[in-house]
Protein backbone atom coordinates (compact mmCIF):
# COMPACT_ATOMS: atom_id res chain seq x y z
CA UNK A 1 0.00 0.00 0.00
CA UNK A 2 1.13 3.53 -0.69
CA UNK A 3 2.01 5.67 2.32
CA UNK A 4 -0.76 8.17 1.60
CA UNK A 5 -3.28 5.37 1.41
CA UNK A 6 -2.05 3.87 4.66
CA UNK A 7 -2.43 7.20 6.42
CA UNK A 8 -5.90 7.71 4.99
CA UNK A 9 -7.06 4.21 5.83
CA UNK A 10 -5.70 4.45 9.38
CA UNK A 11 -7.88 7.48 9.83
CA UNK A 12 -10.87 5.64 8.35
CA UNK A 13 -10.32 2.70 10.68
CA UNK A 14 -10.25 5.02 13.67
CA UNK A 15 -13.52 6.57 12.48
CA UNK A 16 -14.96 3.07 12.22
CA UNK A 17 -13.73 2.10 15.69
CA UNK A 18 -14.91 5.26 17.39
CA UNK A 19 -18.23 5.12 15.56
CA UNK A 20 -18.84 1.61 16.86
CA UNK A 21 -17.73 2.44 20.40
CA UNK A 22 -20.08 5.41 20.37
CA UNK A 23 -22.90 3.09 19.25
CA UNK A 24 -22.20 0.98 22.31
CA UNK A 25 -22.63 3.99 24.53
CA UNK A 26 -25.82 5.08 22.76
CA UNK A 27 -27.21 1.57 23.17
CA UNK A 28 -26.51 1.66 26.92
CA UNK A 29 -28.31 5.02 26.97
CA UNK A 30 -31.23 3.30 25.16
CA UNK A 31 -30.93 5.63 22.19
CA UNK A 32 -30.42 2.58 19.98
CA UNK A 33 -32.80 -0.37 20.21
CA UNK A 34 -33.00 -3.91 18.93
CA UNK A 35 -29.87 -5.90 18.31
CA UNK A 36 -26.50 -4.29 17.85
CA UNK A 37 -23.49 -6.16 16.48
CA UNK A 38 -20.24 -4.24 16.66
CA UNK A 39 -17.10 -4.48 14.54
CA UNK A 40 -14.11 -3.45 16.72
CA UNK A 41 -11.20 -5.81 16.19
CA UNK A 42 -12.14 -6.69 12.62
CA UNK A 43 -11.52 -3.32 10.91
CA UNK A 44 -8.62 -4.48 8.77
CA UNK A 45 -10.85 -7.04 7.05
CA UNK A 46 -13.37 -4.70 5.47
CA UNK A 47 -10.83 -1.92 4.93
CA UNK A 48 -8.12 -4.11 3.47
CA UNK A 49 -10.44 -5.81 1.00
CA UNK A 50 -12.17 -2.62 -0.08
CA UNK A 51 -8.84 -0.86 -0.58
CA UNK A 52 -8.10 -3.52 -3.18
CA UNK A 53 -11.56 -3.15 -4.72
CA UNK A 54 -13.52 -0.10 -5.84
CA UNK A 55 -15.80 1.20 -3.06
CA UNK A 56 -18.98 2.71 -4.46
CA UNK A 57 -18.48 0.88 -7.74
CA UNK A 58 -18.26 -2.77 -6.78
CA UNK A 59 -21.35 -4.18 -5.11
CA UNK A 60 -21.03 -5.13 -1.45
CA UNK A 61 -23.38 -7.22 0.65
CA UNK A 62 -23.01 -8.52 4.19
CA UNK A 63 -24.74 -9.82 7.31
CA UNK A 64 -25.90 -7.92 10.35
CA UNK A 65 -22.49 -6.61 11.48
CA UNK A 66 -22.79 -4.08 8.73
CA UNK A 67 -22.22 -0.45 9.80
CA UNK A 68 -18.57 -0.30 8.85
CA UNK A 69 -19.04 -2.01 5.50
CA UNK A 70 -21.69 0.55 4.60
CA UNK A 71 -19.51 3.46 5.63
CA UNK A 72 -16.54 2.06 3.75
CA UNK A 73 -18.65 1.88 0.58
CA UNK A 74 -19.46 5.56 0.94
CA UNK A 75 -22.46 5.78 3.26
CA UNK A 76 -22.48 8.92 5.38
CA UNK A 77 -21.82 7.97 9.03
CA UNK A 78 -24.48 10.52 9.98
CA UNK A 79 -27.13 8.59 8.04
CA UNK A 80 -25.97 5.27 9.46
CA UNK A 81 -26.16 6.62 13.00
CA UNK A 82 -29.58 8.16 12.27
CA UNK A 83 -30.72 4.73 11.11
CA UNK A 84 -29.59 3.23 14.41
CA UNK A 85 -31.60 5.94 16.14
CA UNK A 86 -34.58 4.91 13.98
CA UNK A 87 -34.87 8.32 12.35
CA UNK A 88 -36.43 9.33 9.03
CA UNK A 89 -33.03 10.64 7.90
CA UNK A 90 -31.47 7.21 8.45
CA UNK A 91 -30.01 5.32 5.55
CA UNK A 92 -33.08 3.05 5.47
CA UNK A 93 -35.43 5.81 6.68
CA UNK A 94 -35.58 4.23 10.12
CA UNK A 95 -37.32 1.12 8.74
CA UNK A 96 -34.26 -1.12 8.78
CA UNK A 97 -32.22 -0.63 11.92
CA UNK A 98 -28.71 -1.79 12.75
CA UNK A 99 -28.94 -5.11 10.91
CA UNK A 100 -30.43 -3.57 7.76
CA UNK A 101 -28.22 -0.71 6.68
CA UNK A 102 -28.56 -0.08 2.93
CA UNK A 103 -26.93 2.54 0.75
CA UNK A 104 -27.70 1.54 -2.78
CA UNK A 105 -26.35 4.72 -4.38
CA UNK A 106 -22.94 3.61 -3.14
CA UNK A 107 -23.74 0.03 -4.11
CA UNK A 108 -23.91 -1.17 -0.55
CA UNK A 109 -26.67 -3.71 -1.10
CA UNK A 110 -27.49 -4.28 2.47
CA UNK A 111 -27.11 -5.93 5.76
CA UNK A 112 -29.19 -9.06 6.25
CA UNK A 113 -30.06 -10.75 9.50
CA UNK A 114 -30.41 -14.40 8.53
CA UNK A 115 -27.05 -16.09 8.88
CA UNK A 116 -25.93 -17.21 5.42
CA UNK A 117 -28.78 -15.37 3.68
CA UNK A 118 -26.54 -13.05 1.67
CA UNK A 119 -24.59 -15.87 -0.05
CA UNK A 120 -27.12 -16.48 -2.82
CA UNK A 121 -28.01 -12.79 -3.03
CA UNK A 122 -24.34 -12.02 -3.71
CA UNK A 123 -24.22 -14.66 -6.42
CA UNK A 124 -27.40 -13.13 -7.85
CA UNK A 125 -25.88 -9.65 -7.89
CA UNK A 126 -22.94 -11.20 -9.75
CA UNK A 127 -25.43 -12.77 -12.14
CA UNK A 128 -26.89 -9.30 -12.69
CA UNK A 129 -23.43 -7.96 -13.45
CA UNK A 130 -22.89 -10.83 -15.87
CA UNK A 131 -26.20 -10.07 -17.61
CA UNK A 132 -25.44 -6.37 -17.91
CA UNK A 133 -21.86 -6.86 -19.02
CA UNK A 134 -20.08 -4.50 -16.61
CA UNK A 135 -16.69 -5.00 -14.95
CA UNK A 136 -17.97 -4.56 -11.42
CA UNK A 137 -17.66 -7.45 -8.99
CA UNK A 138 -19.88 -8.54 -6.12
CA UNK A 139 -18.24 -8.83 -2.71
CA UNK A 140 -19.91 -10.80 0.05
CA UNK A 141 -18.56 -10.34 3.58
CA UNK A 142 -19.76 -12.93 6.08
CA UNK A 143 -18.54 -14.60 9.24
CA UNK A 144 -17.24 -18.12 9.59
CA UNK A 145 -20.43 -19.46 11.16
CA UNK A 146 -22.43 -18.62 8.02
CA UNK A 147 -20.49 -21.39 6.31
CA UNK A 148 -22.48 -23.96 8.23
CA UNK A 149 -25.67 -22.97 6.45
CA UNK A 150 -26.90 -24.84 3.41
CA UNK A 151 -26.80 -21.61 1.42
CA UNK A 152 -23.00 -21.65 1.69
CA UNK A 153 -22.63 -24.94 -0.15
CA UNK A 154 -25.49 -24.33 -2.54
CA UNK A 155 -24.11 -20.94 -3.49
CA UNK A 156 -20.45 -21.99 -3.79
CA UNK A 157 -21.59 -24.67 -6.19
CA UNK A 158 -23.61 -22.30 -8.36
CA UNK A 159 -21.06 -19.48 -8.26
CA UNK A 160 -18.39 -21.87 -9.53
CA UNK A 161 -20.73 -23.58 -11.99
CA UNK A 162 -21.90 -20.33 -13.58
CA UNK A 163 -18.46 -18.65 -13.19
CA UNK A 164 -19.95 -15.64 -11.48
CA UNK A 165 -17.90 -12.51 -10.65
CA UNK A 166 -18.24 -12.77 -6.90
CA UNK A 167 -15.67 -12.57 -4.11
CA UNK A 168 -16.60 -14.28 -0.87
CA UNK A 169 -14.76 -12.81 2.10
CA UNK A 170 -14.94 -14.95 5.22
CA UNK A 171 -14.17 -12.93 8.32
CA UNK A 172 -13.30 -15.82 10.56
CA UNK A 173 -13.61 -14.38 14.07
CA UNK A 174 -13.61 -17.84 15.64
CA UNK A 175 -17.09 -17.68 17.17
CA UNK A 176 -20.60 -18.27 15.84
CA UNK A 177 -22.59 -16.22 18.33
CA UNK A 178 -21.27 -17.88 21.52
CA UNK A 179 -19.98 -21.18 20.17
CA UNK A 180 -16.31 -21.57 19.38
CA UNK A 181 -15.56 -22.64 15.83
CA UNK A 182 -13.90 -25.89 16.86
CA UNK A 183 -17.06 -26.80 18.75
CA UNK A 184 -19.36 -26.16 15.77
CA UNK A 185 -17.31 -26.85 12.70
CA UNK A 186 -15.36 -29.90 11.62
CA UNK A 187 -12.85 -27.81 9.66
CA UNK A 188 -11.53 -24.68 11.35
CA UNK A 189 -9.74 -23.25 8.30
CA UNK A 190 -12.66 -22.17 6.21
CA UNK A 191 -10.89 -21.71 2.87
CA UNK A 192 -10.40 -25.47 2.74
CA UNK A 193 -14.13 -25.95 2.53
CA UNK A 194 -14.53 -24.59 -0.99
CA UNK A 195 -12.07 -26.96 -2.62
CA UNK A 196 -15.04 -29.25 -3.22
CA UNK A 197 -16.30 -26.64 -5.66
CA UNK A 198 -12.99 -26.20 -7.44
CA UNK A 199 -12.90 -22.59 -6.30
CA UNK A 200 -9.75 -20.50 -5.89
CA UNK A 201 -9.21 -19.70 -2.22
CA UNK A 202 -6.68 -18.28 0.21
CA UNK A 203 -6.28 -17.53 3.90
CA UNK A 204 -4.44 -14.65 5.51
CA UNK A 205 -3.98 -12.68 8.70
CA UNK A 206 -7.01 -10.47 9.07
CA UNK A 207 -5.39 -8.14 11.61
CA UNK A 208 -2.67 -6.73 9.40
CA UNK A 209 -4.30 -4.55 6.77
CA UNK A 210 -1.34 -4.74 4.41
CA UNK A 211 -1.56 -8.53 4.36
CA UNK A 212 -5.30 -8.32 3.81
CA UNK A 213 -4.77 -5.81 1.02
CA UNK A 214 -2.18 -7.95 -0.78
CA UNK A 215 -4.34 -11.08 -0.58
CA UNK A 216 -7.43 -9.13 -1.61
CA UNK A 217 -5.64 -7.68 -4.64
CA UNK A 218 -5.04 -11.20 -5.94
CA UNK A 219 -8.64 -12.14 -5.18
CA UNK A 220 -10.19 -9.03 -6.73
CA UNK A 221 -8.05 -9.33 -9.87
CA UNK A 222 -9.03 -12.95 -10.24
CA UNK A 223 -12.73 -12.17 -10.04
CA UNK A 224 -12.62 -8.99 -12.13
CA UNK A 225 -10.69 -10.66 -14.91
CA UNK A 226 -13.55 -13.11 -15.45
CA UNK A 227 -11.95 -16.18 -13.91
CA UNK A 228 -14.96 -16.81 -11.67
CA UNK A 229 -15.50 -16.65 -7.93
CA UNK A 230 -12.86 -16.54 -5.21
CA UNK A 231 -12.98 -17.30 -1.49
CA UNK A 232 -10.78 -15.29 0.85
CA UNK A 233 -10.53 -16.22 4.50
CA UNK A 234 -9.33 -13.61 6.99
CA UNK A 235 -8.38 -14.68 10.51
CA UNK A 236 -9.68 -12.08 12.90
CA UNK A 237 -11.39 -11.47 16.24
CA UNK A 238 -14.23 -9.37 17.54
CA UNK A 239 -13.54 -7.69 20.84
CA UNK A 240 -17.11 -7.28 21.92
CA UNK A 241 -19.72 -9.98 22.25
CA UNK A 242 -21.73 -11.23 19.33
CA UNK A 243 -24.37 -8.62 20.15
CA UNK A 244 -25.10 -6.48 23.14
CA UNK A 245 -26.69 -9.19 25.27
CA UNK A 246 -23.52 -11.27 25.16
CA UNK A 247 -21.31 -11.29 28.27
CA UNK A 248 -18.61 -13.42 26.57
CA UNK A 249 -18.72 -16.24 29.11
CA UNK A 250 -17.64 -18.69 26.43
CA UNK A 251 -14.10 -17.37 26.12
CA UNK A 252 -11.29 -16.27 28.45
CA UNK A 253 -10.11 -12.72 29.14
CA UNK A 254 -6.59 -14.00 28.42
CA UNK A 255 -7.60 -14.94 24.90
CA UNK A 256 -9.17 -11.53 24.36
CA UNK A 257 -6.03 -9.84 25.68
CA UNK A 258 -3.86 -11.88 23.34
CA UNK A 259 -5.87 -10.71 20.33
CA UNK A 260 -5.81 -7.10 21.49
CA UNK A 261 -2.04 -7.29 21.24
CA UNK A 262 -2.64 -7.68 17.52
CA UNK A 263 -5.06 -4.82 17.15
CA UNK A 264 -5.47 -3.89 13.46
CA UNK A 265 -5.40 -0.16 14.14
CA UNK A 266 -2.36 -0.29 16.39
CA UNK A 267 -0.46 -2.54 13.99
CA UNK A 268 -0.84 0.05 11.24
CA UNK A 269 -0.31 3.01 13.58
CA UNK A 270 2.90 1.60 15.00
CA UNK A 271 4.15 0.82 11.53
CA UNK A 272 3.53 4.39 10.38
CA UNK A 273 5.26 5.72 13.50
CA UNK A 274 8.22 3.37 12.89
CA UNK A 275 8.35 4.62 9.30
CA UNK A 276 8.34 8.14 10.73
CA UNK A 277 5.22 8.96 8.74
CA UNK A 278 3.52 10.14 11.91
CA UNK A 279 4.09 10.56 15.66
CA UNK A 280 2.09 9.28 18.58
CA UNK A 281 1.05 12.88 19.21
CA UNK A 282 -0.30 13.09 15.65
CA UNK A 283 -2.28 9.91 16.23
CA UNK A 284 -3.71 11.10 19.53
CA UNK A 285 -4.71 14.41 18.02
CA UNK A 286 -6.42 12.58 15.16
CA UNK A 287 -8.35 10.41 17.60
CA UNK A 288 -9.54 13.49 19.48
CA UNK A 289 -10.57 15.19 16.28
CA UNK A 290 -12.51 12.08 15.18
CA UNK A 291 -14.26 11.84 18.55
CA UNK A 292 -15.30 15.46 18.18
CA UNK A 293 -16.59 14.79 14.66
CA UNK A 294 -18.63 11.83 15.85
CA UNK A 295 -20.06 13.76 18.78
CA UNK A 296 -20.66 17.12 17.12
CA UNK A 297 -21.78 15.94 13.71
CA UNK A 298 -22.77 12.26 13.66
CA UNK A 299 -24.53 12.02 17.01
CA UNK A 300 -25.92 15.52 16.75
CA UNK A 301 -27.47 14.72 13.37
CA UNK A 302 -29.03 11.52 14.68
CA UNK A 303 -30.33 13.19 17.84
CA UNK A 304 -31.85 16.14 16.03
CA UNK A 305 -33.38 14.24 13.11
CA UNK A 306 -37.14 13.71 12.96
CA UNK A 307 -38.90 10.41 13.61
CA UNK A 308 -40.69 8.73 10.70
CA UNK A 309 -44.35 9.71 10.43
CA UNK A 310 -46.83 7.13 11.70
CA UNK A 311 -49.01 7.92 8.67
CA UNK A 312 -46.21 6.50 6.57
CA UNK A 313 -46.12 3.15 8.39
CA UNK A 314 -47.07 1.25 5.23
CA UNK A 315 -44.89 3.21 2.85
CA UNK A 316 -42.24 1.02 1.15
CA UNK A 317 -44.07 -2.29 1.54
CA UNK A 318 -44.82 -2.24 -2.19
CA UNK A 319 -43.56 -0.18 -5.09
CA UNK A 320 -45.24 3.18 -5.56
CA UNK A 321 -48.79 2.21 -6.47
CA UNK A 322 -49.33 4.82 -9.18
CA UNK A 323 -46.34 3.56 -11.14
CA UNK A 324 -47.66 0.00 -11.05
CA UNK A 325 -51.25 0.72 -12.12
CA UNK A 326 -50.90 -0.79 -15.63
CA UNK A 327 -50.22 -4.19 -14.06
CA UNK A 328 -52.50 -3.78 -11.08
CA UNK A 329 -55.47 -2.96 -13.33
CA UNK A 330 -54.30 -4.79 -16.46
CA UNK A 331 -54.86 -1.60 -18.43
CA UNK A 332 -51.41 -1.45 -19.93
CA UNK A 333 -50.89 0.98 -22.78
Amino acid sequence: MKLEDKKRVLREMVVHRRFEERCYQAYIERKIGGFLHLYPGQEACCNGVMEAARPGYDYVITGYRDHVHAIKCGADPKEVMAELYGKETGSSKGRGGSMHIFDVKHRFMGGYALVGGPFPLAAGIAKGIQMKGGDEIAICFLGDAANNQGTFHETMNMAALYKLPVLFVCENNLYGIGTAIERSTAVVHQHKRVCGYDMEAAETDGQDIEKVYEAAKVAVNHVRSGKGPYFLELLTYRYRGHSMSDSRGYRTREEEEMWKQRDPIYILRDRLIAEKAMTMADYEAMEKEIDAYIENEVIKFAEESPEPKVEELEKYVFADRESQMPWITGKAA
Binding site: P120, A122, G124, I125, K127, G128, M131, L161
Partner: peptide, 21 residues
Amino acid sequence: DTPISENSYTGLGIGASFLGV
Protein backbone atom coordinates in the same frame (compact mmCIF):
# COMPACT_ATOMS: atom_id res chain seq x y z
CA ASP B 1 -30.97 -25.03 -15.39
CA THR B 2 -30.29 -24.87 -11.68
CA PRO B 3 -29.01 -27.48 -9.29
CA ILE B 4 -31.56 -28.88 -6.85
CA SER B 5 -30.89 -26.12 -4.34
CA GLU B 6 -34.21 -24.33 -4.03
CA ASN B 7 -33.37 -21.78 -1.38
CA SER B 8 -30.16 -20.63 -2.99
CA TYR B 9 -31.23 -20.53 -6.62
CA THR B 10 -34.26 -18.55 -5.49
CA GLY B 11 -31.91 -16.22 -3.62
CA LEU B 12 -29.70 -15.97 -6.67
CA GLY B 13 -32.66 -14.84 -8.75
CA ILE B 14 -33.61 -12.31 -6.08
CA GLY B 15 -30.06 -10.93 -5.96
CA ALA B 16 -30.06 -10.54 -9.74
CA SER B 17 -33.37 -8.67 -9.52
CA PHE B 18 -31.68 -6.07 -7.30
CA LEU B 19 -29.79 -4.99 -10.43
CA GLY B 20 -32.89 -4.81 -12.61
CA VAL B 21 -32.88 -8.36 -13.95
